[in-house]
Design a binder for these strands. Structure first.
Lengths: 351, 351
DNA sequence: CGTCCGCCTGGGAGCGCTCCCAAGCTTTTC
DNA sequence: GAAAAGCTTGGGAGCGCTCCCAGGCGGACG
């Protein structure tokens, strides 16, 4: 027997409309009726037809997560796995579906398709490259959209982000507090805002302490362990050799540690290392990595939750006045690689 | 102006039905009319409402890819990235949408949800663990389903697979041809059919040559590089030390190479190594890895194409008689790690 | 005791398509 | 040259919901 609202209504002895109200948690249904309807629904394992709902209700309850990166990147960096987890959880809780919009075809096509084909009610946009030419197309249309990360100069777009500048600054400050003065950094790919912000945080902290690092102390990586290793090898060439390194990601920090160890030096005794992101790998690194906690999953969760909220109260979302910008604080996680234990200078590094 | 079939019809001077026929590439439309309608559609960037199509046509044109593995695994192993790429390409070409059914919640819930919520027309099932208790639920319902890989003893389910047994056998045979006799293996997780099949291929080839490997020559890994390294370290303990190793994945082969090199030995001079999968990393390994080519993307493509075909010709799909089983051949890719160059014994290893 | 206002409930009118049948027109066939 | 058999084309009848309005019912109020 094919189940429809009508059929459930017949079995529960009420009307289609009442069943619909029950399913959508609408008001104005007597408690007793509500319970009776739920019982029938449960008994028959009924699930309303999504296509019909979408057609009649003019919304699909699907939101898309656009990750403007090649598939190989997405499926290599645990960052995205955690981000998706967070988004998916928020969607689940609110009865929405998360659809990954993998950019497979040439960018041009895909973005146009995304914009036109409104089979999603809104879009979540993962951090795009600064020079991605198609992101503006996405932003111009009046698709409800929430950014993960931020685009410099675009305060008109709702966003959820971690405080990268503050986090990097916290990491650098911690090294300064421990007495290091020759602090180098390994940055992420610098056409990603997050990498730029982290570099800025590093520079800010140093400058506040009256230190201007030599340009050679700033080496660009690409987030990968290998690139961290390479960057560290370059840093090891330079004299005076740095006594501490802030890497903009844990992977790169781990690469750096490997380079240091391969050169016959010790972490943190000879060179201290601090990472960023607090990935699972940071805790099990050797030595365990001091790092900045980056609540990636929470960011995904909040981004999805924000978008859905916009969708459900369109009145508010339309008013350009109050665009939400959520910035989560970054937190220092002290482990072994910074040498705090060694130096015993447990001065007020964190709070 | 909101665009609908009706509106396009008005602009093209024909009826809703004709426009529908054009969009669906139906027969019985005069060439001239067809062209006129397309022109209007293109001009207005029209895309039919998916919800309405799904409701009226009783199919969503969405197929789900179920990967019964934790998210962290999916987003770590490039295997899935390639698989998805293949599936998505096939879907794209046929106007279908691929939806990743990430198993986020506890398995029980999710599978029930997958089965009930028919917002997809069919399912693609990535290789499940042998003891996954919920896969049978998926198979019992009459959801159109195509397996990637195979489940032993279930010949009633359409499947697309690489010939793992033959591939492993090819790899081992190649080592035998080169004169190696103490050939060890590093297997994948043995509750995955692929791993078992590859082990079987290895054993078959050895036994055919009259060799019975000591049990210590068979070490289980978990597909990861680290596990390959660990397994190789165990193999290096054993006497007589193996002179060649067949690893059931390239990652593990690379880990094995690192272990061999860390022990002060050379590949392939002291120990030859052959991998499986022919991942991009195999070609750039040091030394470049001899391996078995595994057409993952093609498998994904064929699986999706097969499913869609089933969907479009339901008459055929219903007849239990001819369930498709596609088995793609595995191919030996000779590079440096097997020592063929060294030994110059270029006897008919491959064809 | 009648009126008003709330809470419930039922059903009509679509949402934008696909499917199907019938009507018009053109071609074939004997 | 008329009937039969194509091609095209148009429009009705849903698909299973949501939205909205109208009506029934009860209690609070004057």
């Amino acid at each position: 027997m094919k189940m429809t609202l009508e059929e459930i209504a017949r079995l529960a002895g009420c009307s289609r409309s009442t069943v619909s109200r029950v399913i959508n948690h609408g008001p104005n249904v007597r408690a007793e009726t509500r319970e009776r309807v739920w019982k029938v629904i449960r008994e028959h394992d009924f699930q309303p037809n999504l296509a019909a709902r979408a057609l009649a209700g003019r919304r699909s309850r699907v939101i898309g997560l656009v990750i403007p990166q090649p598939l190989s990147t997405i499926f290599t960096d645990p960052y995205f796995s955690m981000l998706i987890q967070g988004c998916a959880t928020a969607c689940d809780e609110r009865g929405y579906y998360l659809m990954l919009s993998l950019v497979l075809r040439q960018a041009d096509d895909t973005y146009r398709w995304l914009i036109r084909a409104r089979h999603m009610d809104g879009l979540l946009l993962a951090p795009p490259l600064l020079d991605d030419p198609f992101v503006p197309h996405l932003l111009d249309k009046h698709l409800p959209l929430v950014m993960i990360g931020r685009i410099p100069g675009r305060t008109d777009i709702a966003s959820v982000n971690v405080d990268n500048v503050k986090g990097a600054s916290l990491a650098t400050q911690h090294l300064l507090n421990l007495g290091y003065r020759r602090i180098a950094t390994i940055t992420g790919v610098l056409n990603l805002v997050g990498a730029i912000d982290r570099l800025e945080g590093y520079l800010c902290a140093l400058r506040k302490a009256g230190i201007e690092p030599p340009p050679e102390y700033i080496q660009e990586g690409d987030w990968s362990e290998m690139s961290g290793k390479r960057a560290m090898e370059r840093l090891l060439q330079f004299r005076p050799r740095p006594d501490a390194v802030f890497a903009a990601s844990d992977s790169m920090a781990i690469g750096a540690i490997k380079a240091i160890q391969a050169a016959g030096l010790k972490v943190p005794d000879d060179i201290a290392v601090v990472g960023f992101d607090d990935m699972p790998s940071a805790a099990i690194a050797d030595p365990p990595l001091t790092t900045i906690h980056h609540p990636i999953e929470k960011i995904g969760f909040l981004a999805a939750a924000t978008l859905i909220e916009k969708l459900e109260i369109p009145a508010t979302s339309m008013s350009e006045t109050n665009v939400q910008h959520i910035v989560l604080p970054a937190r220092l996680v002290i482990r072994m690689s910074c040498g705090q234990a060694l130096r015993c200078s447990a001065e007020s590094a964190v709070t």
